[in-house]
């Protein structure tokens, strides 16, 4: 579903990603872990199409199509969804109106009929209830005055409504208490399908106890220094990121082709 080949990215003069290789298949959950500043969020943003990053080398294929040439909205319509680490607030634009515009743009692209207001409202109420989201949040302006937890839940709620094929969760666990974390993880797990893949970007192992990954990759100074199964996350939890240099030496060749 997603193939990243030798991806180099920089911001201004500063290189952030130095040759990332990654392959994600339909139905898989991949976790990207790493210390602060290792480039995790950059990878997520580049896949979503953020233009503040400059790709200097490498390619990204999504369903066999070069992803980097697509506009952010094209990617979204093709099924790429990113749950933002810091969702932006938009005073004056209600969550409902925003999501209705987004959903119908995506449905239109997929050749589906647009949902009218009644069907749409029914849909979002159902999804909101499932995520135990206060219905009042739906009529509030997008992310405005939301608590940290509400923002993150709102991102997962949008994912549930838009039904993407590749979902990237950028530090969705940060700022969540344990109850909120469970609700979010529950939401994600319920969306797992054979045809859908997840990339979970996180600093901590905690989230991965609830969303169990198929593969774990460790990002360090812009490179994937180790890859492995879910047990790698536990190992990191025990040893921390301090031992990465050694790990890098031992596991110089990435596990994936």
């Amino acid at each position: 579903m997603l193939i990243v080949k030798n991806l180099h990215v920089r911001v201004g003069d500063k290189p952030i990603l130095r040759g990332i290789d990654l392959e994600v298949h339909a139905g898989e959950v991949h976790a990207i872990m790493g210390p602060n500043g290792s480039g995790k969020s950059t990878l997520a943003q580049v896949i979503a199409g953020r233009d503040t990053y400059e790709v200097t080398q490498g390619e990204v294929y999504y369903e066999g199509v070069p992803l980097l040439e697509m506009e952010p909205e094209e990617r979204a319509r093709e099924g790429v969804f990113m749950a933002f680490q810091y969702p932006v607030a938009i005073p004056g634009l209600s969550n409902t109106r925003f999501l209705h515009a987004a959903l119908n743009a995506i449905r239109k692209h997929r050749g589906l009929p647009e949902l009218d207001a009644i069907d749409f409202l029914a849909l979002i109420r159902e999804k909101a209830a499932f995520l135990q989201m206060d219905a009042g949040l739906l009529e509030r302006p997008v992310n405005e005055g939301f608590s940290g937890g509400e923002k993150k839940r709102n991102e997962i709620f949008q994912m549930a409504v838009l039904q993407p094929r590749l979902a990237i969760l950028d530090e969705t666990d940060s700022g969540l208490d344990i109850d909120a974390l469970k609700i979010v993880a529950n939401g994600v797990n319920s969306l797992r399908r054979p045809g859908r893949a997840f990339i979970v970007v996180t600093h901590y192992q905690r989230l991965l106890s609830y969303i169990v990954p198929d593969r774990v990759h460790v990002l360090y100074e812009g490179s994937i220094v180790r890859s492995g199964g879910k047990e790698l996350a536990l190992e990191l939890e025990a040893s921390g990121y301090g031992g990465l240099q050694r790990g890098a030496a031992r596991d110089a060749a990435p596990a994936l082709p």
Binding site: A48, D51, E73, A76, M82, I90, L99, A102, A105, I106
Partner: peptide, 10 residues
């Protein structure tokens, strides 16, 4: 970017 990343045209 937030809106476009949800599929809404520029």
């Amino acid at each position: 970017f937030y809106l476009r990343s949800r599929g809404i045209a520029e």
